[in-house]
């Protein structure tokens, strides 16, 4: 795939026909981004954290029951409601369309978590940056991602640190980051069903740009005008996305 021409606009597509609800993306994300775990008691308070969740939607009544799976992550909106309400500028949209969260600037007011219609912003109730990470697990922390302190909101960044590393490599080779394949978030990389796609929406030749134009494509809560850059492909039509 060619290099990005102008400023890229990174986006993701998720084929709901392919998603098996296996949670590999959830595990990969937690491992990649140092996302804390929680005890059952903490989860019961609603303090469990995940930057991507697989929502299970059960339909019908026994014996005709059907479960649908829907991975939900930050939709990286082009018109993000969370950015509008942030009083400190801690959450903002960067030139490539990624909605950033700057932890030292966040005051933990949680306006953004409430404004986000997708409920993908999590509040840090505990001091994970201190001694709460078990010693045995500290070696597996990702040094490219910070440990968020208590009292701030955190969210998916499309694995922005991976983009930075890809950008460094591209800069040394005197080119721009390729519009597809070179920079891929951990969830997309780990998906065993190849249900997730990632690339530059501004390049019409990328798989993701083609999928975004397909008749199966829809955006979550599109009527709110948030203009997400995560595109879902609805179920019911097999093998509409290319298999490798």
């Amino acid at each position: 795939m060619a290099e990005a021409k102008g400023t890229p606009r990174w986006g993701m597509a998720i084929d709901l026909d392919r998603c098996t609800g296996c949670q590999a993306c959830v595990v990969a994300c937690k491992q990649e981004n140092n996302v804390p775990f929680s005890s059952p008691e903490e989860a019961a308070y609603g303090r469990e954290m995940a930057w991507i969740r697989v929502m299970a939607i059960t339909e019908g009544e026994y014996p005709k029951v059907k479960t649908r799976y829907l991975p939900m992550l930050c939709q990286q909106c082009d018109n993000p409601p969370s950015v509008k309400v942030c009083p400190t500028g801690a959450t903002y949209k960067n030139p490539e369309g990624i909605v950033g969260q700057i932890y030292p600037r966040c005051i933990g007011c949680r306006y953004c978590a409430n404004a986000c219609p997708y409920q993908v912003k999590d509040f840090n109730w505990y001091n994970w940056s201190g001694f709460r990470w078990p010693q045995e697990m500290r070696q597996s922390l990702n040094p490219d991602v910070s440990l968020r302190p208590r009292g701030v909101i955190e969210k998916c960044t499309f694995c922005h640190h991976r983009l930075q590393k890809a950008r460094d490599q591209a800069a040394i080779e005197g080119r721009k980051v390729k519009s597809e394949g070179e920079y891929v978030p951990a969830c997309v990389q780990s998906c065993p069903a190849q249900a997730m796609f990632f690339g530059d929406l501004n390049d019409p030749e990328t798989t993701i740009a083609k999928l975004a134009r397909s008749s199966r494509a829809f955006k979550m809560l599109d009527e709110l005008g948030t203009e997400p850059k995560v595109i879902y492909l609805k179920e019911g039509e097999w093998s509409a996305t290319p298999r490798e």
């Binding site: 960067n94 030139p95 950033g100 490219d144 910070s146 960044t157």
Partner: peptide, 8 residues
């Protein structure tokens, strides 16, 4: 000078 260029 984008925030996420240096903040992780």
């Amino acid at each position: 000078v984008d925030c996420v260029a240096c903040h992780k």
